[in-house]
Amino acid sequence: MKTHVNEVFSSIQGEGILIGRRQVFIRFSGCNLDCNYCDTSKSRDPLLGDLISTEELLFKINKLITPDFHSISLTGGEPLLHSDFIKEILEQNEFKSLLETNGSLPGELQKIAGLLDYVSLDIKLPEHEASKNWDDLFGLELKSIKLLRDEEINTYCKVVVMPETKVDMIGLIASKIAEEVQNTSKLSMVIQPVSPLDLWADGSQKLFEISEEAGKYIDVLTIPQIHKLLNVR
């Protein structure tokens, strides 16, 4: 089996609950959304990068493993567009894995959910993705979250917030997750201030308000993109 992979590289995880962990990142090509804050917009091209087999990818991964290696990060683009390829990789190897997904493809997620160790599910806000109906998109994300909790996968919901993000909207999202997902153990919400952090020079107080509102319903952390502060990929 072959698929398009944009790049494979080793770096430090700069987001979410695995922040600071050394990972091998596999950036798959293509995405089904068009978010306005995307920092890997080139990866939206489904033909970007090399067409490689699972064997070729495994070879690349093994060449990059270091003594401090923790796990592989399956990212993109949207990696679930390559779910069958990922399934083959995970079934054949014992790497710990983090899936970074927009959560809009629960049917594809179902194929590999039981093989994953961690999932970062990026919940979109109405202002993030104007080409989709937000209620429908959020419904798909909720379905993916419930699926992951049924499988007891360590999951965090990442929400990229901007200075203009409405506090009430974050509260609504957090309350809906708490309402729909009965098992919220091993489930957190990571509030991620949009980069660059200079945008928050006059708005940092709002991050406290957002965190407090989300914290009424779900475990919450506020974490910026640390890899950008370290100037690494």
Rank of each mutant, 00 (worst) to 15 (best):
H4T: 04
S11Y: 12
I12E: 12
E15H: 14
I17F: 14
I26S: 04
F28D: 05
S29E: 10
G30D: 06
G30W: 12
L33T: 04
C35F: 05
N36G: 06
T40C: 10
S43K: 02
I52L: 12
T54F: 10
T54V: 15
E55Q: 11
I72C: 07
P79Y: 05
L81W: 03
I86G: 00
E91S: 09
Q92Y: 02
T101R: 02
N102P: 00
L105S: 01
P106A: 00
Q110A: 02
K111V: 02
G114L: 14
S120E: 05
S120A: 06
E129R: 11
D136R: 04
I145Q: 07
K146V: 14
L147W: 09
R149E: 10
D150I: 05
T155A: 02
Y156N: 08
P163D: 15
E164A: 15
D168M: 08
M169S: 05
S175L: 09
I177E: 04
I177P: 03
V181S: 07
V181H: 02
V181F: 05
N183K: 14
K186A: 12
V190C: 04
V190P: 03
D198E: 14
D198R: 11
S204L: 15
E209H: 12
G215Y: 04
G215L: 04
K216Y: 11
Y217N: 08
P224H: 08
P224M: 10
Q225T: 13
V232S: 07
